[in-house]
Design a protein around this nucleic acid. Sequence first.
DNA 1: TAAAAAAGTTAGTTATGACTAACAAATTAA
DNA 2: TTAATTTGTTAGTCATAACTAACTTTTTTA
Lengths: 228, 228
Amino acid sequence: MTNKLNLNNLTKSEEDYLKALFQLLIEDSSVKVGNNQLADYLKVSPASTNNMIKKLKAKNYVVSEKYGKLDLTEEGKSIAVRLIRKHRLWETFLCNYLNFTWDEVHEVAEQLEHIKSKKLINELDRFMDFPEKDPHGEMIPNADGEYSILPKITLSSLSDGDVCQLVAVDDGSVNFLKYVSEIGLALSSEIKVLEVREFDKSIRIQFDNTIETVTRKFADNVFVKKVV
Amino acid sequence: MTNKLNLNNLTKSEEDYLKALFQLLIEDSSVKVGNNQLADYLKVSPASTNNMIKKLKAKNYVVSEKYGKLDLTEEGKSIAVRLIRKHRLWETFLCNYLNFTWDEVHEVAEQLEHIKSKKLINELDRFMDFPEKDPHGEMIPNADGEYSILPKITLSSLSDGDVCQLVAVDDGSVNFLKYVSEIGLALSSEIKVLEVREFDKSIRIQFDNTIETVTRKFADNVFVKKVV
DNA sequence: TAAAAAAGTTAGTTATGACTAACAAATTAA
DNA sequence: TTAATTTGTTAGTCATAACTAACTTTTTTA
Ligand SMILES: [Mn+2]
Ligand SMILES: [Mn+2]
Ligand SMILES: [Mn+2]
Ligand SMILES: [Mn+2]
């Protein structure tokens, strides 16, 4: 018999590394994730990630060969998903009950996701009547770690004439989120791509009788579902 | 002009030490608190507290002379009160909204009290409509750190024939709190002291047509207000 | 008031998780 | 296919916060 659940006893740092690796891996499961990439993502030195990866390998959360790419074990994935569940439930709570705006929740959720109490998070889930999505449109895993992958592509991947619906946004940048709200975009907005300009990849879009030009960088952080 | 608010930037440990010292000091403001007493309370070695006290003195949260007793500066008190506010508000939230029992809340609140977000705690306060007391009967400081001291003495300090009302309980021990509920006591229970037995200081009490004998240790953790 | 006990301090060690600098392996470009 | 670049690893340092063991000061007790 394998360990029931040795899923506790992880430090905040260990949890953060596992979550980061998980997020890098699902961004594009075909592309491998290396040590330096993880270091970049977490804004620490490659030496730090190297060291932590050693520890996580010893604990059987990560697998990799020397000089090879990184991967998570099932156990490692499970911990990452649980963190993401907590993060998104807290963001939802802050937005829907405590008057936080969608650009304010991420930072606080980064702290709250490390609170250790199964009951706390499951009761919070029940209190909110089991929400499916967080304020940025991302799916919330259930208590068993299950969640549907929402079909999303970036706005930047579309072409002239495409029509799409905004399904989610990257929640990492406060400035970006404020910007999205300010120009009038929100979850479910229907967006028509008028023109992708070759010169600088900027995109002219139309939504709700508004026409705006957004940069490639902006469009990289907007996730959509094609309609036409 | 003094520092606006350098009240952030404290580690979880520093916060815990300040809160512990504050709680030891108000238990009996006349009695001085020493290094070893603080170590006992926090369940760390005297060397650890000595070291941390040095740091807190350097940061002007604590004052003491070499080989002398410890005291908090106004700044130090302010941080401690803020922690207590957060602790009690979270306990209240867990009990009143998330189906926690009063013996389950303390451990989780010990984690939640260290979350850094002014907005979070003030919105939580508003969401619950500014509760005055926590699940154990303790007063909750307001956003300015103000709170009334509720007049409390321990049940163990009473004598034969005294009648009192249960106003609060120490929230540190899960077993104690379960025990209190099990025998049928709750906040506001009216208790009559039938007899304090000399031999072992056990106390025979009556409440709600129940007669029970409780130990001195039990009675030390029950706070009451005299009625007769 | 001198010895014993208690309280407080210091020194030295450990673990975690950062860092930089130097080095080795793998990949890419010339 | 060699050289340059990128990627990954190791060694050594630092800060935090714990520990034990030894020592000093203060307080208590005989
Ligand atoms: Mn987030
Ligand atoms: Mn989110
Ligand atoms: Mn408590
Ligand atoms: Mn309490």
